[in-house]
Nucleic acid binder design. Structure first.
Lengths: 215, 215
DNA sequence: AAACAATTTAAACGCTTGTTTGAAGTATGT
DNA sequence: ACATACTTCAAACAAGCGTTTAAATTGTTT
């Protein structure tokens, strides 16, 4: 359930997708030209239009290629902890729920440079309410966010929905910052401590878990 | 101290700045053309180059015009609570410090549509590590962030700097989401509760205050 | 009222953009 | 080996971009 099979691409298509992904992340989607993509990928200028139809469709392909497996994994983990709690005849905890969403996200973003680039694109998109491709992104995320909210509501039945929705938005904001090195530089900061993934995951989960239940 | 005087603009310049601000926020900086700005503002196409020199300099002017008074106010509030605590011979609390930063930010962003647009641009910029204008933005923010970090470090002396830096980044992420209606839509959500500013400020401060000291 | 400076205007500039074209090349199946 | 489909290629296309120009207009000073 909720599983979506990935799409297969030819070698040329994958080179284009990889190159576009990297340039979108580092230069921005709008600022990246087809000439920049094709010359970097060492393919002909017309290759993008031939293989993907248009620049717009290329962007969508870049997004869907990685979004699908990531969301599959997030769904898998959420279902897993819900099932485990049911088996053990108890409620899921807030930290469990948030971990099931945050762990795949941060693990995914730290897997390699390509994944880091991809998450960079995604977070930029999340921050751009009026972006042309945001509706695509939102439609992909919606079922997952709904499931996440329902799980949190069940774990924290006394908190009003309005408040809980707000805190979930804050959580997404925290996660967006966590999954990149956006770092407004801090003077005291010595050249990026570069903590490992597990520490980052733990810190993020405990930060938002505490925020979910203040006082 | 830390106060920077605002720049004066002519009527034509202000119309251009207002229009550019709105279009930058709703369409993105790169996607907004000078022709779109000047035709919407009902001024001649050449007016931007005449009054600001170039599109690049116009963007900088849009940023600086509002950033300066906002940061003046943030500095004022931070200095105020530090002075008050000193007068009362006690440490500043974490919630006080975060409130002094968050309150002016959210109040500013909710003042009117123009301010909302501006904060939309700023948050997009914060999320774009490789954006051309990020360095300008960071240089403006740096003294403030440093002061904020120093205050937090003094209030939470037992927390390692590395951890504290991470939590400050999370806080900025939360605030970035709070100051806009970015809202990944949640199904249970009934057409935006639209809570008032004071509630939003309180919720944000308590969320990040809790996150600063988990357990 | 005349002279000067500041601003606005319409038109054009060179350049880059995404896309399309038709020929050349390559792979596949019989 | 040939016919057929697929892919690559260089070249060109119209459209849109930021910027510049020089004349017309407006505002200010003397």
């Amino acid at each position: 359930m909720n599983y979506i099979a990935p799409v297969k691409y030819s070698a040329t298509q994958e080179i284009i997708l990889d190159t576009a992904e990297h340039l979108f992340a580092t230069q921005g989607i709008h600022a990246t030209t087809l000439r920049a993509i094709t010359s970097t990928a060492k393919v002909n200028l017309a290759a993008v239009n031939y293989h993907f139809g248009s620049k717009k469709q290329l962007i969508q392909a870049v997004l869907l290629r990685r979004m699908t497996p990531l969301n599959n994994e997030r769904h898998r983990q959420l279902n897993a902890i819900i099932q485990t709690a049911r088996d053990e005849n108890r409620r899921t905890t807030v930290a469990e729920i948030l971990h099931a969403f945050i762990e795949p996200t941060l693990h995914f973003s730290q897997k390699n440079m390509a994944h880091k680039d991809f998450m960079s694109i995604v977070s930029t998109l999340m921050m751009n309410p009026h972006n042309e491709f945001r509706s695509l992104f939102v439609s992909i995320m919606k079922p997952l966010i709904d499931q996440l909210f329902a799980a949190l509501k069940a774990a924290l039945p006394t908190i009003p929905s309005t408040t809980l929705q707000m805190r979930l938005q804050f959580t997404l904001g925290t996660l967006t910052f966590a999954m990149r090195e956006i770092d407004i530089p801090i003077s005291a900061q010595q050249q990026q401590p570069a903590s490992d993934i597990e520490t980052l995951i733990d810190e993020t989960v405990s930060f938002v878990s505490a925020g979910m239940e203040p006082l």
